[in-house]
Design a protein around this nucleic acid. Sequence first.
DNA 1: ACCGCGTTTGTTATCGATAACAAACTTTTT
DNA 2: AAAAAGTTTGTTATCGATAACAAACGCGGT
Lengths: 343, 343
Amino acid sequence: MASISKRPTMIDVARRAGVSSMTVSRALKPNTSVSDGTRERIQKAADELGYVLDSTAAGLSSSRTGFIAVTIPSINNANFADTLRGIVERLRDTNMQVLLGYTNYSTAEEERLIEQFLQRRPEAIVMTGGAHTERCRMLIENSGVPIVETWDLPEVPLGDVVGFSNAEAGRLMVRHFYDQGYRKIGFIGGDTSRDTRGLDRRRGFVQALEELGLETDRLIGSGPPPISMREGAASMKKMLSDWPDTDAVMCVSDLSAFGALTECQRAGMRVPDDIAIAGFGAYDIAEHAIPAITTVDAAALSIGENTAEILLRRLGDADEETPAPSTLIAPKLLARGSTVRPL
Amino acid sequence: MASISKRPTMIDVARRAGVSSMTVSRALKPNTSVSDGTRERIQKAADELGYVLDSTAAGLSSSRTGFIAVTIPSINNANFADTLRGIVERLRDTNMQVLLGYTNYSTAEEERLIEQFLQRRPEAIVMTGGAHTERCRMLIENSGVPIVETWDLPEVPLGDVVGFSNAEAGRLMVRHFYDQGYRKIGFIGGDTSRDTRGLDRRRGFVQALEELGLETDRLIGSGPPPISMREGAASMKKMLSDWPDTDAVMCVSDLSAFGALTECQRAGMRVPDDIAIAGFGAYDIAEHAIPAITTVDAAALSIGENTAEILLRRLGDADEETPAPSTLIAPKLLARGSTVRPL
DNA sequence: ACCGCGTTTGTTATCGATAACAAACTTTTT
DNA sequence: AAAAAGTTTGTTATCGATAACAAACGCGGT
């Protein structure tokens, strides 16, 4: 054990193996021309010294840091966690490492993070959503780093997009309610500009109501994200007090939908007989609640996997200027007991 | 705009401001002796060029990378997410950045991550739990990097510990059940060595049962983590079939407890009248379920905050050899409707 | 005006690896 | 056996910043 004196460098390994440090550098990475004999010798020397590569130095020298910067709005959100998981798992077998930051649904915080991340010279950046501060857009464009925006359909994309139409998710749900015979339909959440995705769902929702000639004023905001069970319950209470004859409600997420469901149950209303409730996000809770809650699956994991796919293509030096192969993930409605009246 | 030609370096900024690059280096960090005039001039030049510091180079030169490596078992777990949040938020105003990895409850994967992280020269490492592979312990010890282990009480700590007694959480719950008059008490989950924390809760639970002279064989395993609602429901089904007279059950987490609760409700059993159900982790779902689920709060956020506190102390060059100021977070039982019979 | 001290700025060497090119060594071909 | 071609190894310069030391500057006191 070389004790904590000082960490060994490639030169130390080289000396011990009787070669030059360049040969050590080569020997430690795959697909390089080093004879089996010396490679073994070097590996052995490295092990004996307890050598650990310094990727800071490697990064400086090769100008390839192996970092992918990723921002998500919140750690504590199963959808974004799944997207992240999709990215990380696809990247596991490469030498890429994820630099994670969470914005807390704030574009100002996002800007701060991006600014920090750019100092680390990431090879690509993945952002959730397409809403950014002006300065953030500028920083990114000046940096020349490839970008992927996810979970949204930005009007003016910064680069590639793995998109999802939140508006379409809202529309889907209105049609489902309508098919099931509901007419007095409301929406909970999605009132804040911080959660642009929730806002889009609500927008699509209202638009679909208009197309069907239904009332569009049963809207309850529930403040800044994250919207949780508590806010769902409180909002439902308000909905029932403001519009007691409401017969169907979509919530901005499954968590708030569950809160709304429990509120109805406490109030003695029967779901779906007296009122239908739906959410968004295909959370576990929606599947296991009684009744199970109708929801929209956004395929969060696929969004992550597709994102990673694009990253690998961009980094695997294909033509730099390949046009953005935007991917669109389609929303899928999962009809369940909370909106489907038994025969 | 300097287009994508090449990124400007400190030398470019220095030239433009008519100073040396060393002065630029100083001007861009706080608390350095640079006159107000030149600092402004340099800042202006940097802005005009769109200069962005390269922390890879800075790290190599100063041997301070600003990285804190953190491993957690799963991204999709509100408790670990809270702990992470505690760390990140306390670190926000420093120049420290978190390198996150998740082990998927596997010590082999943990070892792989640690090996990767060490190449990045982190200034400290935070790990969840105290179970590591032999090689992982060795790598860490050889590296000389300060360590904090969390959420566990390792027998042989690698460094500082922000601990939590999972066994005590199990014991607490048994006593609570007993006080409420329950005697036929079982446990769901915690059978796998991958989730050492769940295992510890179960161990403490069984031990407390023994001390009270109660039966200790009502144990249902539920396979490898993460244990979710589905597994909770399935295990409860098995529990009721194997030991139909069971009158109280603790589940390894609130998620499985909720699954168990729904299973009981489907089976027409009344909670807590026919059977009591409790969980662990103080998840939202436990608070909002009907009835609300009794749980144990592990103060996940505090664990993170305390961890960050220790990190800052260790890095703020206090005496290197300060003895490990182990912190112990106490479990707190939250008694709710699922285990407390109405009068 | 001169000395001395504190503050501001500059010089040089270095962090640890890799790119690019060059040299030495093997193997194949004719 | 010599030339051609391929493989393995070495040399030198460099990535972009900072540490450590050195020099220049500014300012008050006498």
